[in-house]
């Protein structure tokens, strides 16, 4: 009964909330008031926007020694998570059967374990930084902690589900993913999408002033 609910209605509901929520949030950025800048531009906006979307993947050289932990942990976490989501054999099979109709080469088992460990390590380091560092502690919101905990649970249940010994572990993973998808559009997890317009706005602003950003 519960299994049917998790695999059925709750799954479709979470997908709906995720996609509709993300579209709404992005729509609210696109369709919100946007003032036209009447000053004479020194440079074009579009190349500045495009450049900044990519340039902010790397920290400023002078800043790097002061933010090493966030940068390294951030990269470890995001790359590990990316590999786990898109290159774990069960996920590829799932995408193939339910969404895409094609598949690609999966990580070997040891590769998955390595990627998952990277993601865990990065996530834990980032969360420790959040609770220990006075700056992060002051500015962090409840939602940031919920996002970290939810992501951790999804990763953990995913690793357990990989054992495939018990169907209940797979269900538990799916349930945690569903909670994650439902929470996603209403949280700072949205940065996975909104970093693009955010960087683009700032890059365009700097671009029209002739500044590399």
């Amino acid at each position: 009964m519960i299994a049917n609910f998790i695999d059925g209605p709750l799954w479709y509901f979470s997908l709906f909330v995720f996609f509709a929520g993300v579209m709404l949030r992005l729509g609210s950025i696109i369709f919100s008031k946007h003032k036209v800048d009447l000053s004479v531009a020194r440079g074009p906006e579009a190349p500045g926007a495009f450049r900044t979307i990519f340039s902010r993947f790397l920290p400023d050289k002078g800043m790097y020694p002061h933010i090493k932990l966030q940068v390294i942990a951030g990269y470890i976490f995001h790359l590990g998570l990316f590999a786990v989501i898109f290159f774990a054999a069960p996920h590829i099979k799932f995408f193939d059967e339910h969404f895409l109709g094609f598949s690609w080469t999966a990580l070997p088992h040891w590769g998955f374990i390595f990627a998952a460990q990277l993601a865990f390590l990065g996530l834990i380091l980032l969360w420790l930084q959040r609770v220990i560092n006075p700056v992060s502690r002051l500015i962090s919101k409840t939602g940031d902690h919920i996002s970290s905990i939810l992501t951790f649970i999804v990763l953990l249940t995913g690793c357990l589900a990989l054992l495939e010994s018990f169907s209940s572990l797979r269900l538990l993973h799916r349930f945690s993913v569903e909670l994650f998808l439902i929470y996603f559009p209403f949280s700072s997890l949205m940065h996975a999408f909104t970093f693009i317009p955010s960087r683009a706005f700032t890059g365009a602003w700097f671009g029209r002033r002739g500044i590399k950003s």
């Binding site: 950025i29 919100s32 008031k33 800043m63 700056v135 700072s188 940065h191 317009p197 706005f201």
Partner: peptide, 26 residues
């Protein structure tokens, strides 16, 4: 002051605190 920039900026902030190290007042 609310506009698309504010919406995208606040939607994106993950409270990492990196900006502190760029500010001489911090």
């Amino acid at each position: 002051q609310m506009d698309s920039k504010v919406e995208s900026f606040f939607s994106s902030c993950v409270n990492c605190g990196i900006c502190a190290e760029s500010c001489l007042f911090y």
